[in-house]
Amino acid sequence: MFEARLVQGALLKKVLESIKDLLNEATWECAATGISLQAMDSSHVSLVALNLRSDGFDKYRCDRNVSLGMNLTNMAKIMKCASNDDVITIKAQDDADTVTFVFETPNQEKISDYEMKLMNLDTEHLGIPDTDYSCIVKMPSVEFQRICRDLSQIGDSVVISCTKEGVKFSAAGDLGTGNVKLAQNANVDKEEEAVVIEMQEPVSLTFACRYLNSFTKATPLAPQVQLSMSSDVPLVVEYKLEDMGYVRYYLAPKIED
């Protein structure tokens, strides 16, 4: 038996919104420690890895590990039936071929349940090596979203250049060029507005805008985003979920032909 109850059900809606752009289907691995998911987009250029720890749920029971393969478009249709203030419970029997979502209003006066068919997905799990990144940038997630959106008007790719002074995002295209520079700024009133750079050595890497824009669907999940970069290895874009876990995206840098 698997059962996970989340009073803050809107969080689950936001998590799904953050991955359904990139993934049509994925397997939610449910274990005693929590729920995890790892999947590449269909072109195998980017990867989503998320973790929702069991202690972040209001009630969590997982007698034995279950893999819940889901069509995420269909899951999103069902999640749209939950209001933002609903309590959401996910339930599945061991070896079941369906999963049940229960939505309760805060006053318990309306309870809805939706049963969805599960899929048998052939999932390939990738080993992600531990990396000491040359640059780690922490910045407001809304700012990162804005920069990705703005520069994708200019070109298909964004060059992210990081030094200890700051981080620069650049794009070039038929119409011209655009650059956005952010200075390191830890002395702000609100922690979430800070731009903090931890640099071992400077890096400059090129990434496809369309994937970065998909990653920014996770913006409502966290006030800050963390970009981890090293030469010739995939970028990690991480959104931390308070007291719960994380959503991470990996994107291979473009290379000169």
């Binding site: 590449m40 072109s43 250029v45 990867l47 390939e124 799990h125 496809a208 995939p234 291979a252 032909d257």
Partner: peptide, 14 residues
């Protein structure tokens, strides 16, 4: 011009 490699170049299947 630049080329977009896939993640299989960096991560190995387990």
């Amino acid at each position: 011009t630049s080329k977009q490699p896939t993640l299989s170049k960096f991560f190995t299947a387990q």
